[in-house]
């Protein structure tokens, strides 16, 4: 029983991380129609930035986190300017490959800046652990889950209820038309990238204490976040939390009992199975293309 609860807690924690990462690329996806493959490496960068601010700048833990997220916002804006804006009008494929190039640059830069040896980040609870029905759950994990719920809700409000959200949706629907009705498209686009990157930063600082810090920190979780987003239907922000938890459960709960060596495969097998039956995901609209 305690094993089950432990695995469930892991599933929820990891699911939250996937949801946070997914939230970041979905924001850009909604605004530009393109999936940002650099999201995982942005997460890594966020984690390294907080590590650097805490150890080298000797800030308090909280201010190191805030600084990292703020820098990440700037990185996102820069990414928009240098890797996205110049090729915005090209095919989606080209843009995606450019984001892959950006990912390589980010990762290589991190490896040069901080070497590749694993680092360890402290958490605000000094590693304290909560006991629940015999299961031991780090407080950091609870923080991850709680923060994720708050951030997903906040993002939903931002996209659904504010002028900025309307601008983003307008951009996604028709960039030219959005520009014609007076939406400052390039500012909205930069802001979307900045926010998305800041979200990656949040994900980075939250997961850094839960595991060793390496240059591959964010990449693997990004794949699972992709799976979560596709599982429910790419583009759906609210539902991604659901998808992410399903992915977490497939990986940590199912993976605990069935061939644990292969547990990393279960999320993808789940996703492929869903796609085979519902090509647009569980909650995606199954409609034809309009002409």
């Amino acid at each position: 029983m305690s094993g089950f609860i432990t695995s469930l807690a892991s599933a929820l924690t990891q699911g939250s991380v996937f949801a946070l990462i997914a939230l970041g690329f979905l924001l850009i996806y909604r605004a530009t129609g393109v999936v940002n493959f650099a999201q995982g490496d942005l997460v890594t960068l966020g984690a390294y930035l907080s590590y650097w601010a805490y150890h080298d700048l000797e800030l308090t833990l909280l201010s190191s986190w805030l600084l990292a997220v703020a820098i990440m916002f700037v990185v996102g804006v820069a990414l928009e300017r240098f890797a996205y804006a110049p090729i915005r009008t090209r095919s989606e494929h080209t843009v995606v490959i450019a984001t892959l190039g950006a990912a390589m640059v980010i990762r290589a830069s991190i490896a040069i800046w901080q070497d590749t040896s694993p680092k360890f980040s402290p958490d605000p609870f000094n590693g304290e652990i909560m006991e629940l029905a015999g299961a031991r759950i780090p407080y950091q994990n609870l923080l991850v889950i709680g923060a994720t719920v708050v951030i997903v809700a906040g993002t939903l409000l931002l996209v659904g209820r504010t002028g900025f959200g309307r601008s983003i949706r307008a951009l996604a629907a028709d960039r030219g038309a959005a520009s014609l009705v007076g939406i400052p498209v390039s500012r909205v686009s930069m802001l979307a990238f900045g926010l998305s990157s800041a979200l990656a930063g949040v994900a980075g600082v939250l997961i850094a204490p839960t595991q060793a810090l390496t240059v591959d920190l964010g990449f693997g979780p990004m794949l699972f976040a992709f799976a979560a987003a596709v599982l429910v239907g790419l583009g759906r922000i609210g539902a991604v939390l659901l998808g992410a938890v399903a992915i977490g459960i497939a990986q940590y709960v199912v993976g605990r009992y069935v061939f644990p060596d292969f547990r990393d495969l279960y999320p993808f097998i789940l996703m492929l199975a869903v796609l085979a039956i519902r090509p647009r995901g569980l909650l995606g609209e199954q409609v034809g293309r309009r002409v």
Binding site: F262, M271, P279, G281
Partner: peptide, 23 residues
């Protein structure tokens, strides 16, 4: 399995297949 999916979902599904194969 996946030829009916749209192109980003297709991309991610093939990416997942690559990951599965490696594992």
């Amino acid at each position: 399995l996946i030829s009916r999916t749209e192109h980003f979902a297709f991309a991610i599904a093939t990416l997942a297949f690559g990951f599965v194969a490696t594992v």
